[in-house]
Design a protein around this nucleic acid. Structure first.
Lengths: 223, 223
DNA sequence: TCGATTGCTGAACGTGTGTAAAGTTATCTG
DNA sequence: CAGATAACTTTACACACGTTCAGCAATCGA
């Protein structure tokens, strides 16, 4: 019974392949994808070696074979998801074509898309946030992502100031304001899907913020 | 040993009072406070009957005696905390004194206070958010709180529009924008305490948003 | 002072958790 | 084809979880 080979009929009973070996790198990718599905479906309860292993169709022990602890896997998942979204959104803006003002419109179109504005995505993100304080790896991933957006928005806003003949002195706080506005709209939208504003309206709010900035309404930020 | 009364010295060994009975309402208040301390200290791991009971100095069974499940306790804690902050912030604005513009400044002063801008508070809130999808009670508490802020900001913004001789047509989306901005600044501040902006700067960003609105930069919201 | 009431305790139960470590086997290399 | 390698499985462990429930005891009214 226990692994005993069938006697006399080696060709009849093909020993079914119990698992497949793949490159560690590829396996980790699969584990990350399974982890993200678990987080999206079960929220915080999805942070579970057993659930993720089942979702990936592998044994319990595999995760601890590829990661020192489950937190490392979650951190890797954060890194992967955040980088994917960041790349998708920022690549939607052609850095060589159009005015700075037009770049914002392109950015908003990419940001306010169903890919990003998805309650399940916030569900995943909330888990990440809740682990930031206790997991240095996740905190580091968060800081890296944040710095990326700050850098990109800072570039656009600097160009916009130059385009409008304004001083770039206000750019730093303008970045704070704009990224806060984008985060906040995303948060509200995902937390309350039945809420009272549409995606086009959300875009209009963001566009208006840029218009207000361009019209010099934010002079006091230069203080 | 097990509760056996000491023989022969009834006066020597005073039976220590094992616990105290208090009104259910008061006990629930204590449990809520203990729960909030646990959430602030341990994040999601603080959602635990054993941890909260220990923090409150009561037995394990008491929580299930006063609440059907631990989720009910957490929902009660949410309600209490959210209402407390909402009251503190909104009462800081005298509805009878000053212009609408001045009311915003008062509101911002109360909102951007150490009470609210506290990483531990976000830690608690993230737990609430993570439970919204699975707990109708928490979802309801969230919606109620949200509606409260929307109502208040809508009032201020309507007054501001009247004060500036503007159409109130844009108020609805202005509420979306302002509350998103406030949420986003709070989120950023709490997630990244070592970040590159101060509380006064955060106030300046919010004030500038109001100025931009007052200067008519948000005309397109009326579409 | 003596029940009655009921807030409260604490052990028990079944389930789920992350990790460790030993055993298995698919795949690669010689 | 044989042996080495390491990806992978499996089992086991110790612990934490929420909930239940029988019984204890603090307080109140008589």
């Amino acid at each position: 019974m226990k692994g005993a080979p069938p006697i006399g009929n080696p060709t009849m009973t093909r020993p079914a392949r119990k698992f497949s070996r793949i490159q560690p790198e590829l396996r980790r990718e699969h584990l990350v994808e399974a982890a993200l599905r678990c987080l999206a479906d079960h929220g915080h309860a999805g942070v579970s070696v057993r659930k993720i292993a089942a979702e990936a169709g592998v044994s319990i022990g595999l995760i601890n074979h590829h990661y020192d602890s489950i937190d490392q896997l979650i951190a890797h998942a954060y890194e992967t998801l955040a980088a994917g979204i960041f790349n998708r959104v920022t690549r939607a803006v052609d850095p060589t074509a159009g005015t700075a003002r037009e770049k914002f419109s392109a950015f908003f179109r990419a940001y306010f898309s169903p890919d990003v504005f998805d309650p399940k995505l916030l569900g995943v993100w909330v888990v990440f946030w809740s682990m930031i304080r206790h997991s240095p790896a996740i905190k580091a991933a968060h800081d890296r992502t944040n710095a990326g957006y700050t850098r990109v928005l800072e570039g656009y806003l600097t160009d916009l100031a130059a385009e409008n003949g304004q001083s770039p002195a206000t750019v730093r706080l303008a970045v704070v304001g704009l990224s806060a506005l984008l985060d906040g709209i995303w948060l509200q939208w995902c937390l309350t899907p039945e809420q009272a504003f549409t995606i086009p309206e959300a875009i209009a709010v963001a566009e208006s913020w840029i218009d207000g900035l361009a019209h010099g309404a934010y002079g006091r930020l230069a203080s």
